[in-house]
Amino acid sequence: MMNRRELLQAIAVATGAAFVYNPAYAIWKPPAAATSVADSGFNAQQVALIEEICETVIPRTDTPGAKDAGLPAFVIGMIRDCYTPTQQALFEAGMANVETRSQLNFGKSFTDASDAERNELLTAIDSEALAYNKGEKVVWEGEGFGDLPHYFTLFKQLIIFGFFTSKEGGTEVLRHVEIPGTYKDIPYKEGDRDWATVWPT
């Protein structure tokens, strides 16, 4: 993989040009920063809950997990900046529901539950989400959220997007080549990693 310095060298070779950035002239503007965790309105307990939900969905294995990749800060910024008020309300209702069910099932907060307990609960809720989205009656009634899917679908899709488009997810779990040079067929065997993407999906 090529680092920034090597990229600059490659460009200089290809174009014969040396250059520096002058952001004053930029038309491509740096987008506004994401809402920070501190400004998000989530309290410490909620932030800890989001963190553990993220890590349970995408745990650290022999490669980085959600926490290593900077979630939940990303998830929190996305929720506050890119989701509608109704979606945000669903997200928060879902967080409360996870917490309630942890208390019911294990007699303790989700953040105090063991990895195995967290996995057990979210696995059950993941199955429930699948059933709910097919129109089956499940524990979560989704009252007040109209046509929105089960809250866990929102959690899962956002966590997956955030993780696999993070640097850790994109380069250490997926593969990334900054300057591929060409496009061609290659042999594939099970276990070979997929490629990172460069456009938002």
């Binding site: 987008p31 990303f74 910024g77 955030g162 994109g170 456009w199």
Partner: peptide, 9 residues
């Protein structure tokens, strides 16, 4: 890359 943007693009 996408991770360099606040909302990953």
């Amino acid at each position: 890359n996408l991770w360099d943007y606040p909302h990953h693009g």
